[in-house]
Structure formats: C-alpha cells, structure tokens
Simulated assay, not measured.
Amino acid sequence: MAEEVKLIGMWGSPFSRRVEIALKLKGVQYDYIEDDLTNKSPLLLKSNPVHKKVPVLLHNGKPIAESLVILEYIDETWKANPILPQHPYDRAMARFWAKYIDEKCMLALWNACWCEKKDREKAVEEAKVCLKTLENELKDKKFFGGESIGLVDIAANFIGFWVGVIGEVVGVELLTIDKFPILCKWRDEYLGCSVIKENLPSKEKLGAYFRTRVESASQSK
C-alpha cells in the first residue's frame, strides 16, 4: 500500500518549513496543504484540536502536531539520512538544544524585534545572550549536527533566515559577524545548502508580509 503523507502548513511559518526541510532531506514524497491562519480550515481544526496550529503532518490519515515532535516522528519513520544522532546521549543533547531554541531563544529574538522601542535595548541584550549561548555550543563544528544538517540546525532555521528578514524590516540587527562570527559562518553554510535554500520562503515576500504587519500595528495605535 502506498504511503499517504500530507503536510498542513503556512508558507511563512518557520515551524512549517522545518517539516518541509526534514521531508526533503529524507526524500519523502508529500502533498502540501496551505492553511489560512486567519480563517483556519476544518481539516486543521480536526487534525490539531488542542493547539489549532500548523504544522500538522498527516501520515496515512493519522495526524501528528508540533514541529519538533513531527521531526522526531519523521526521523523514526524514514530511516535514510538521519537528522538525530545515533548515540542516546547525543540524541538527548540534540533534543535539549532544539528545546532551548524553541522555548528560550526564539522568544527572546522575537521580542527583541517586536517589543516597544522603550524596552528594546534590554530585549536586544537578552536576545544576544541566547545567541552567545548557541555560538558557544557550536564551537568549531560546521553544523550543530556535526558535518551534516541535523535536528538542531533545522530547529534553528528561524535564526538562520527569519531573524535577518524581520531585522531589516524593523531596523534591529541581531546576528552580526563582529559579535557572532561562528553563528554567522553557520548561517551562511546552512543557507548555502540546496535543500535549505529551496525550502525557505522568498525573502521579498516574507519582508513584505512583515512590513504589512508593522504598518497595521502603527495604524492601530
């Protein structure tokens, strides 16, 4: 029986794009279903009734939600090109850093870009502490996963791509080569990979999306 793999996502979501990257790295064929998060589809609400968010992976009709959970599911289901290390300790460390990115780093970076101007200096400092922590973890490795892209690199796609696009729109520069040379080298290696490059949104389209957000926020004040 042929496997049926579908992904409910949103084009500009770093979480959706994580799953697309993992599926492409694994060579898994899938159907992509774009959802409108301002008017969520019945399929999304039925597939993820708890969080009502993208992404959701549908594998032979069974839904799996939350991007990091989906990434692990993909790795366990399709064995080729593993994105998690084989050794239990290394796997635990990969999970730790992916969780750190989601629960600490992304929040700090998002806040630094979108907070009120009066709070920005403090927010930027907090974001830079998170980036420094990741820089220290990366050390002399090409990727967080070593010589090849792994779970942590995929989880860090927001840092590699979205932070730069949002920063340009709102005028906040976070990931600079003078402050974070190792992370910047990682970003360039990461974005230079064909699978990554081909599975990121257009920089222009994403920039326009966030500019609209800035304009609507200023008009509502």
Rank of each mutant, 00 (worst) to 15 (best):
residue 20 E to Q: 11
residue 54 V to D: 11
residue 149 I to V: 12
residue 102 D to H: 02
residue 184 C to Q: 13
residue 28 V to C: 06
residue 170 V to E: 05
residue 69 V to E: 02
residue 66 E to D: 15
residue 3 E to P: 00
residue 29 Q to W: 05
residue 194 S to W: 09
residue 43 L to N: 02
residue 90 D to V: 13
residue 64 I to V: 09
residue 116 E to S: 14
residue 142 K to R: 10
residue 125 E to W: 08
residue 110 W to T: 15
residue 175 L to P: 03
residue 79 K to N: 11
residue 124 V to S: 12
residue 192 G to E: 01
residue 156 A to R: 01
residue 188 D to T: 06
residue 96 F to S: 04
residue 55 P to W: 09
residue 207 G to P: 04
residue 220 S to Y: 07
residue 31 D to H: 05
residue 137 E to D: 06
residue 70 I to R: 08
residue 7 L to A: 03
residue 133 T to E: 13
residue 107 L to H: 14
residue 10 M to Q: 14
residue 93 M to T: 14
residue 74 I to K: 05
residue 153 D to G: 07
residue 33 I to D: 07
residue 207 G to R: 05
residue 20 E to G: 06
residue 142 K to M: 14
residue 34 E to D: 14
residue 121 E to I: 09
residue 208 A to T: 06
residue 80 A to P: 01
residue 163 V to F: 08
residue 56 V to M: 04
residue 78 W to A: 08
residue 181 P to R: 03
residue 6 K to H: 07
residue 13 S to I: 00
residue 185 K to N: 15
residue 41 S to C: 06
residue 125 E to H: 12
residue 159 I to N: 04
residue 13 S to Q: 08
residue 108 A to S: 10
residue 129 V to E: 07
residue 168 E to N: 14
residue 94 A to R: 04
residue 146 G to V: 13
residue 1 M to F: 09
residue 16 S to Q: 10
residue 129 V to C: 02
residue 129 V to F: 08
residue 190 Y to V: 07
residue 55 P to R: 08
residue 185 K to S: 15
residue 145 G to Y: 02
residue 108 A to T: 10
residue 104 K to I: 02
residue 39 N to V: 07
residue 184 C to W: 02
residue 64 I to L: 12
residue 220 S to H: 13
residue 86 Q to I: 12
residue 77 T to V: 01
residue 207 G to T: 03
residue 220 S to F: 12
residue 65 A to E: 01
residue 101 I to N: 11
residue 11 W to R: 12
residue 219 Q to N: 09
residue 16 S to F: 04
residue 12 G to N: 13
residue 128 K to C: 13
residue 207 G to Y: 06
residue 10 M to V: 06
residue 178 D to G: 09
residue 194 S to I: 10
residue 34 E to Q: 09
residue 69 V to C: 06
residue 52 K to D: 05
residue 80 A to Y: 00
residue 80 A to G: 00
residue 85 P to H: 00
residue 79 K to W: 04
residue 100 Y to E: 10
residue 26 K to V: 09
residue 67 S to N: 04
residue 36 D to C: 12
residue 83 I to Q: 05
residue 167 G to Q: 07
residue 216 S to Y: 11
residue 149 I to C: 07
residue 191 L to C: 07
residue 43 L to I: 00
residue 190 Y to C: 05
residue 116 E to V: 01
residue 50 V to S: 02
